[in-house]
């Protein structure tokens, strides 16, 4: 009798295994339903890619930069010891400019 190849043995392992499942059938049914709900319902209808929808391809950095800059907190009145970390006399530093 010719010896079975590795691939044939591997195929038989999965084939026979799936065929003889008992509890496994229930579990695969649960997995199938779960994957359907996750990928075909939740992903499609409830979880769009926000950046893809709002920024457009190639403009994500610009969009995120805009979001992060516009959410900056307002500055309270400055205390003297915090007055300037800027390399310019009137350039960027702790003197916030809107």
């Amino acid at each position: 009798m010719p010896q079975e190849s590795f691939w044939h043995k591997a195929f038989r392992l999965y084939y026979d295994g799936f065929r003889q499942m008992t509890l496994g059938r229930t579990l695969w049914l649960v997995i199938g339903v779960k994957l359907f709900v996750i990928f075909a319902i939740l992903k499609v209808f409830f979880f769009p890619n926000f950046l893809k929808q709002n920024a457009g391809k190639g403009h994500e950095a610009e969009f995120v930069a805009g979001e992060l800059v516009k959410r900056k907190a307002e500055a309270p009145p400055l205390r003297p010891e915090l007055e300037d970390h800027s390399p310019f006399p009137s350039g960027p530093g702790v003197h916030e400019r809107e």
Binding site: V30, I31, L42, F47, N49, L51, V64
Partner: peptide, 26 residues
């Protein structure tokens, strides 16, 4: 049983990153 029930539940977290936490994700 536990393994089958847990499969793919973590993927939902990645969906949430893309939708709810897009600034963070980028």
């Amino acid at each position: 049983i536990n393994f089958a029930m847990g499969v793919a539940t973590g993927i939902i977290l990645e969906f949430e990153f893309g939708t709810n936490w897009s600034n963070y994700s980028w």
